Simulated assay, not measured.
Amino acid sequence: MDDQVHWVRITAEHTTGTMALDGRDISSQVSGYDLRQRAGQPAELVLFLSPVVKDEFDGLARVAVGVSPDPGPAAAAFLSAIDAGELERNALARYDLLNGGPHEMTRAMLALLQDWASGRWQPEVSG
């Protein structure tokens, strides 16, 4: 098999970006990618195709199948870094999460953890 490399251009800004392969914009066809490189080797790019892709390809290609990573280890690392007191204080301070219903504190803490994990809410810094 030919070891031909392809020209790739990736621009990323926050949660958006563009990707071109051999000068062709493929941004709308890609839902994610992994890019890695070892010293002295060409970069290796694994593309995760969008589920709405309905494109055709005809030709030879070196194919790498991307498998989504197991979220368990990342979730465990994230949760192990959480200070229980800080979580409780922040949950109680979020009136938008408290509704007086059953299990409201647990629901508020889970919602707060989701916000923290996604970067939508920053924990208060206690002095």
Rank of each mutant, 00 (worst) to 15 (best):
L45S: 01
A64Q: 04
P102Y: 12
R94V: 04
A74W: 09
R120T: 15
Q114F: 13
V67S: 08
G17S: 09
H14T: 12
I10L: 02
G66W: 00
T18I: 05
R62T: 03
T15D: 03
A93E: 09
V65R: 08
S126I: 10
I82M: 10
L110Y: 03
F57R: 14
Q41H: 09
G127K: 04
T16K: 08
S126T: 07
L110P: 10
D115L: 07
W116V: 02
M1C: 03
R9D: 00
G66Y: 01
N99C: 05
G101E: 12
A77M: 15
D3E: 13
V125W: 05
A84D: 15
G100F: 11
F57Q: 03
D2Q: 07
W121K: 02
G100N: 09
M19D: 00
F57C: 09
S126L: 14
A20V: 03
L110F: 05
A61F: 04
W7P: 02
G23C: 00
V125F: 04
Q41T: 01
T18H: 00
H103K: 15
F57V: 06
S31R: 09
G119C: 12
R120P: 12
G100E: 13
S80D: 14
Q29E: 14
E13I: 07
A64E: 14
S27L: 05
D55I: 08
V65G: 12
E124K: 08
N90I: 10
L87C: 11
G23H: 01
R120W: 07
M1H: 06
R107K: 11
Y95R: 12
D25Y: 00
A108L: 15
G40A: 09
G23P: 01
G17N: 08
L21F: 02
A75C: 12
R94C: 05
L35F: 02
